[in-house]
Amino acid sequence: MIENQMTTGENGISRRLFLATAAGAAMASLPSNASAQQTASPRVLTFSDHEPLGGMRTRFLKDVLFPAIERQSNGRLKIEDHWNGEIAAAYDALGAVSTSKADMATVVPEYTAKELPLHQIFKSFPTGPAGSAQVDFFRRVYAEVPAFPAELEKNNIVPFFCGTGYPVAFFSTKPMAGLDGLKGGKWRSASFWHLDFLRNAGATPVTMHWGPEIYDALKAGTLDGLMVNVDSGYMLKVHEAAPNVLVSKDLWLGHLYMLTINKDVWNTLAQEDKDAIARAAETSYRALGPVMDRSFDAQLAELKTAGASVRILEPAEPVRFGSAAKYRDVQSAWAEEQKRSGTGIAGAVLAEVTAIMNDIMG
């Protein structure tokens, strides 16, 4: 599970201001429709998100994507946005949008592994693309592998935009020269893939609820480190207890925030409005990668300002970690387990996704 709780304090506020500014700049750069005219009675679509409005992802939706939908539809569509689980919590989002409790919602596949088993493949890679290349990867997967949109359709939802996450970072209580330092330590992660990676790399994987107890365990020495997306570690201020940070854009998180719409609602939209949503997504995708890159750099700068020791890994180091993690063995074992559970195409779909990943990574 990705952890993205918002925190308060001067650093948190400055980061939110930076992200809001970045998203605002992206919005300003998008093409406008000069002939757009607001209709008298727009179609209002309710949208649900489990996170508060404030981080890069949520501000991007609020300031860039949603205005683009309204603009591209000439005012025929209006998004009524609800944040911080007001309509549905993270684990309930899929059910909410599939049953029309909300017209649209952010769905995180990792929270619904039973309903979306094939979508778990995304997090099974230890290395992968970042920024614009990460956006391209997910777009290609949905365009080229029919099993993914079919899995969503089975749950009565249609995807219209893919939001992505930040790379993995390793926050350690003690200095680590490299990822070989994982051996013998107690490391926490939420992803079942990452727990296997840590175990294979010689660490003792630990599962623990995301919250202040992680900070306390790091301080007490009962936990040696945290394998987590860099922004979540920053926002929980993990660096105050584990100030030694190893990070790389190549360390893949594979966490996907799918913006989905109820299939029945989608089918009631006029074709021109479906096309408007597609155009809005296209223009927003062009801005998303650069915004993520700027935000990633700002987070590292703020970690250093806060006193953390941050080292960006050399390109070969994440590759060595992937080898030590034996991720291909972990993937194969998962595919066999899925076959026994009735998802017989898991191995073939994994092969298709791997081919796209290899092509994107060059």
Results as ranks from 00 to 15, higher is better:
Trp210Ile: 13
Asn229Gln: 15
Pro42Cys: 10
Leu77Asp: 13
Glu110Ser: 11
Phe137Arg: 02
Ala220Lys: 11
Glu70Lys: 00
Asp231Lys: 03
Ala306His: 00
Pro167Cys: 06
Ile345Tyr: 06
Gly24Asp: 13
Leu256Ala: 01
Pro109Ala: 06
Arg311Ser: 10
Glu317Thr: 08
Ala143Gln: 12
Gly178Met: 06
Leu77Gln: 05
Ser284His: 04
Leu53Arg: 15
Pro146Val: 10
Asp216Leu: 11
Met227His: 13
Glu10Ile: 14
Phe47Cys: 08
Phe66Ser: 01
Lys123Asp: 14
Asn244His: 15
Ala280Ile: 07
Asp196Ser: 11
Ile79Trp: 05
Leu246Tyr: 02
Phe160Thr: 01
Glu115Thr: 05
Ala190Val: 12
Gln120Phe: 04
Val230Gly: 00
Pro146Glu: 06
Pro205Trp: 06
Gly95Asn: 09
Gly185His: 13
Glu282Thr: 15
Ile157Gln: 03
Ile261Pro: 07
Leu218Ala: 05
Ala96Leu: 00
Glu302Thr: 11
Gln338Cys: 13
Gly128Arg: 02
Asn74Trp: 03
His50Pro: 14
Pro159Ala: 10
Pro205Gly: 00
Thr204Tyr: 01
Arg139Gly: 10
Val141Leu: 09
Leu65Asn: 05
Asp224Pro: 11
Arg15Lys: 14
Lys186Thr: 13
Tyr327Asp: 12
Phe122Asp: 10
Asp250Ser: 12
Ala355Thr: 14
Thr283Met: 14
Ala308Arg: 04
Arg140Met: 12
Lys78Ser: 15
Ala90His: 09
Gln37Asp: 09
Lys174Ser: 12
Val107Ile: 15
Tyr215Cys: 09
Tyr257Pro: 08
Trp266Gly: 00
Pro42Trp: 00
Ala355Met: 10
